[in-house]
């Protein structure tokens, strides 16, 4: 990540006269990365849009006090992750109340999303990913879809490269098993 530019953006944001302009630049620079990170966790566009907006509201509120102990993107990525997890937890509670088959619910949501073109096989992959424990799920998504290095992931998640490799390995094994047993 370009930390020098980010530092300039943060400084500009702290100046009330430049705040809006600086935030627009932050939006332009990071909106797509954060969107796709959230979308892969939440899957549906409409929900992702809500979570992304909430994420940027938190970023706006939190930026004046941002201590820059981590990079700007790392900090924003964490906020986006937490927002998505909070959303998923709420949905999980609703899901438990409906007592429907969770796998069918995911497939149903994907089918009803007009901005999803995946076939049956991809839906199956999403169900398998969704059934992973939260940490393995996050590691798998970051590695597989975002193609992040283990070093970047370790920086964002605050864990060791070894632990991440182990999580990814377990996630791959579980997805593989899910595919084998579903046929």
């Amino acid at each position: 990540m370009d930390r020098t530019n980010d530092a300039e953006l943060i400084n500009q944001f702290r100046d009330p006269a430049q705040r809006d302009r600086a935030f627009r630049m932050i939006l332009a620079k990071y909106q797509e990365k954060l969107y796709w990170h959230i979308r892969r966790m939440i899957l549906v566009h409409e929900d992702t849009d809500d979570v992304l907006q909430n994420t940027f509201i938190k970023i706006w509120k939190g930026l004046p006090g941002f201590r820059e102990t981590s990079g700007l993107f790392t900090w924003m990525y964490r906020i986006a992750t937490n927002e998505a997890i909070t959303f998923l937890k709420t949905r999980q509670r609703e899901r438990a109340m409906i007592a429907d088959d969770p796998d069918d619910m995911i497939k149903g949501r994907l089918k009803s999303d007009p901005y999803f073109d995946g076939d049956e096989l991809f839906q199956k992959l999403q169900v398998a990913i969704d059934n992973l424990p939260p940490k393995q799920k996050r590691v798998f998504q970051m590695k597989y879809f975002d193609e992040m290095t283990y070093e970047d992931m370790a920086n964002i998640l605050g864990t060791s490269v070894g632990a991440l490799k182990a999580s990814y390995f377990h996630a791959v094994r579980k997805i593989q098993t899910a595919f084998e047993t579903s046929d």
Binding site: W36, R40, F116, F122, L125, F145
Partner: peptide, 16 residues
């Protein structure tokens, strides 16, 4: 299917 994650088409998002 067993080696599904090695197939590049799955890395191309079906999301729009």
């Amino acid at each position: 299917e067993k080696y599904i994650w090695e197939d590049d088409r799955f890395r191309k998002d079906p999301y729009r």
